[in-house]
């Protein structure tokens, strides 16, 4: 047993990490953040993707005891009140979701991509979401939405520069 203190979506949090538990289970069952999904629980489907110190990770493979002091970002922290993030809004506008199970992980992978590469090519988007499995959409609407979100972000950054 270990008390883990960390920041989740910008707020300080703490939980008791039982031996053998994962970051995903801590988020879902101890911190009540059920946005990250438990799909395969072996790191293959990507539906549990969150950002750990800015890097996308499959949280089902991250031991809970290792995240003491870490900064975690989950899907719950993206929207600012009722205002969605550019990636979320692009997914909504482009109907890049169907059953929705892969969506939180897809969006977190996309956010991580755009944080490090504001103008990705289609191939770079494909690579960034290659660890996220979707079984509904055929991927095309998702790839298009990520490219759309990148354009929105660049446009927003351009406006900021003018100010």
């Amino acid at each position: 047993m270990k008390i883990v203190s960390l920041r989740v979506n910008g707020a300080g949090q703490a939980f008791i990490a039982r031996p053998g538990t994962t970051l995903l289970l801590a988020l879902r069952e101890q911190l009540g953040l059920t946005g990250a999904k438990r799909g395969c629980a072996q790191g293959a489907c990507g539906s549990c993707t969150v950002l750990l110190d800015g890097q996308p990770v499959v949280s089902c493979l991250v031991p809970a005891v290792t995240v003491d002091g870490a900064e975690i970002a989950t899907i719950e922290g993206l929207a600012d009140g009722q205002v969605l993030s550019d990636v979320q809004q692009a997914f909504l506008d482009g109907f890049a979701t169907q059953c929705g199970f892969c969506t939180p992980g897809m969006i977190m992978s996309a956010e991580a991509l755009l944080d490090r590469n504001p103008d990705p090519t289609r191939d770079e988007v494909n690579e960034a979401i290659s660890g996220n499995v979707c079984r509904c959409t055929g991927y095309e609407p998702i790839v298009s939405a990520v490219l759309d979100a990148a354009a929105r972000r660049r446009s927003r950054a351009g406006e900021g520069a003018k100010l």
């Binding site: 109907f95 169907q98 509904c136 959409t137 055929g138």
Partner: peptide
């Protein structure tokens, strides 16, 4: 979406 998601399948 069903047509193209199914097409992918």
């Amino acid at each position: 979406q069903q047509v193209e998601g199914g097409g992918w399948m």
